[in-house]
């Protein structure tokens, strides 16, 4: 297993190196001279040429691009993501401040999605092709097709504006998290439910399930002891990919609900053309995503003895 983890780690370092390059070069996507764009954002329309030049030198935009990248990378290795070009706040500090809100939202959404998806998927597989199963799967297909921003607006309209049960935006109390987490959680649950069902159905068709039945076990023992552990293996892998969806979805949901997390920070920074903040956020999210896939891979190896005890030659 250690060999496997080492291999994954090596792979991820290569990927993260590439990620830094993408994050850095994103800045050059913006049309025009970055110094000018920033100066525009910082000082408004009536800026002078000298202001632009001062900024260019101050922020290091006068150096060749590859030198800029090297300098940036050097700072990065010391965990220095630079300062916001707009507010001059330290980027890493800013991200660290926003992290708890995003983490809370992510955990709450994940819980909600699993609470909906696992029972629905398991029930669907056990009662295959019944009305219950078919309606579950139909609802989940509709669920996959509903964009989370629309679902968010719908929830706001219903629970906040009509019933006044939960606040429509903001952060702080437990009540605030309900709508955003429900938005993200339900939209994620649709896919997980389908995957759980498909995976459990496949497992239930395996010969070892028949063999377990032949040993006289009742269906409950078979489901819980023999089927679910196998069926959850792909669901666990999938959870890693869903983490990416969670982070992506958070951007949209945080914006709708004014949730002060990293997603909202990213969108705000893009609007402000705050390149260093955008770089920082994107890099942070990508690294977080990569590490979560690594964690999932390790978890998978722990759960699946076929990988855990890979031949060590």
């Amino acid at each position: 297993m250690w060999k496997y983890i080492a291999k994954r780690l090596a792979m991820i370092s290569i990927v993260i190196a590439g990620v830094t390059l993408v994050a850095f070069s994103a800045m050059y996507l913006a049309p025009g001279d970055p110094a000018e764009v920033i100066a525009l954002a910082r000082y408004g329309e009536d800026l002078s040429a000298s202001q632009v030049e001062t900024l260019r030198v101050a922020e290091g935009f006068d150096a060749p691009v590859h030198v800029q990248y090297m300098i940036w990378l050097g700072h990065l290795l010391q965990l220095d993501l630079g300062k916001s070009l707009v507010t001059s706040e330290d980027v890493l500090t800013e991200i660290r401040q926003k992290l708890p809100a995003t983490a809370e939202l992510a955990i709450a959404s994940l819980l909600i999605s699993l609470l909906i998806a696992l029972p629905a998927g398991i029930l669907g597989a056990l009662r295959k092709n019944t009305l219950l199963d078919k309606s579950c799967m139909f609802v989940s297909l509709v669920g996959v097709s509903i964009p989370n921003f629309w679902l968010g607006l719908l929830l706001i309209w219903f629970f906040a504006l009509t019933l006044h049960m939960f606040p429509s935006y903001g952060y702080g109390s437990l009540k605030h998290i309900v709508l955003p987490a429900l938005t993200l959680g339900t939209s994620m649950s649709a896919v997980t439910a389908r995957l759980t069902r498909a995976s459990l159905l496949e497992v239930l068709g395996q010969e070892y399930i028949v063999a377990a039945r032949a040993r006289g076990f009742d269906e409950r023992t078979i489901l819980f002891r023999h089927a679910l552990k196998n069926a959850f293996l792909p669901v666990v892998t999938f959870a890693g990919m869903q983490f990416g969806y969670l982070l992506g979805g958070a951007v949209v949901v945080e914006t709708i609900f004014s949730w002060p997390g990293i997603g909202k920070l990213l969108v705000d920074s893009i609007f402000a053309m705050d390149f260093s903040m955008v770089q920082g956020c994107v890099l942070f999210i990508a690294v977080l995503f990569s590490l979560s896939s690594l964690a999932v891979d390790i978890l998978y190896a722990v759960l699946d003895p076929r990988i855990r005890y890979d031949r060590r030659d």
């Binding site: 010969e207 070892y208 063999a211 552990k229 196998n230 076929r306």
Partner: peptide
Amino acid sequence: ACLNPVLS
């Protein structure tokens, strides 16, 4: 095929 792969 008859033995569960994830149980010893």
